[in-house]
Design a protein around this nucleic acid. Sequence first.
DNA 1: TCAGATTGCTAGCTAAACTAGCAATACCTC
DNA 2: GAGGTATTGCTAGTTTAGCTAGCAATCTGA
Lengths: 157, 157
Amino acid sequence: MSERWLPQTEHEHAVMRVLTSIRAVSDAMERMHSGMKGDMDMNASDVAALRLLIIRERQGRSVSPRDIARHLRISTASTTKLLDRLVDSGHVQRRPHPSDGRGRVVVLTEDARNAFFRVFGDRLRAMRTVALDYDEAELGVVARFLDDLCGAMDPED
Amino acid sequence: MSERWLPQTEHEHAVMRVLTSIRAVSDAMERMHSGMKGDMDMNASDVAALRLLIIRERQGRSVSPRDIARHLRISTASTTKLLDRLVDSGHVQRRPHPSDGRGRVVVLTEDARNAFFRVFGDRLRAMRTVALDYDEAELGVVARFLDDLCGAMDPED
DNA sequence: TCAGATTGCTAGCTAAACTAGCAATACCTC
DNA sequence: GAGGTATTGCTAGTTTAGCTAGCAATCTGA
């Protein structure tokens, strides 16, 4: 996770260990998501878009094609094609934006929700099982750390 | 991070918050890596391969094309092309494997190390700065949690 | 010693990103 | 309001980076 900086103190070693672990988790996530190629009939970006939709839906926030382009860091043209795929496969629908005539709102179908949790259910359960072994105080520390980290590495989202 | 499971107790809420935060960090990482398209003249896989090489080098372990294929979950054919790109751009070299006549050992050039830390240096410093605000005990909890999580979601690596 | 597995490569194909440019709509300044 | 500028989502055509199939060289184990 770093070179050119060699941890000296015990504290610095602990910092490095955490950053290494973060890297490992993130890589595992990435592999898990791109591994969906096989399990689901879609590629990594399509799944990432689906995840965005699921999260935003739970937050009660709507998602536009633009949002997807920004979140995935792909062009709006690529997003159009991505949405074409998801519409063709019956996972999402395009609706007109209620107040902006140019925009669209992308909504999940019930099929998409089912498919998503059929594939990710096991992993999510496994992750939840790990987390349940930690008490509230510990989980609080972990969550606070992760949120701080997120803020530091990416002002968006 | 999940639906179909609604947290009831405070403890379960804490679990969900942590999993949501993990997701956010992982997404931020993914965006950071795929955002390298612009900053560096390479794509996400190439950067991921570079990261693997940097980490393994620090551990004193050598890396074969096969290792890269396995880590990135791509075919050996794609790995050959990936290495062609990295060789052409002067980031790595292919060396014969000392004991296995079929194999190769992929080694970083000094240019690659410099380029990598030029691009990632700021982010790594920012992440380190966040981590330094936590004491050793807290970092220990976080690292342990992340390692557990990693083990649960991916038996490899 | 030899049959089968493994490694890394080439060739050819496909999928999913990209850029450029467009019409429709929204926003901002006068 | 009116006119210029920005934004949204789309199409068309191109490029990139993955894939499968199959090969020669090498290793391994019965």
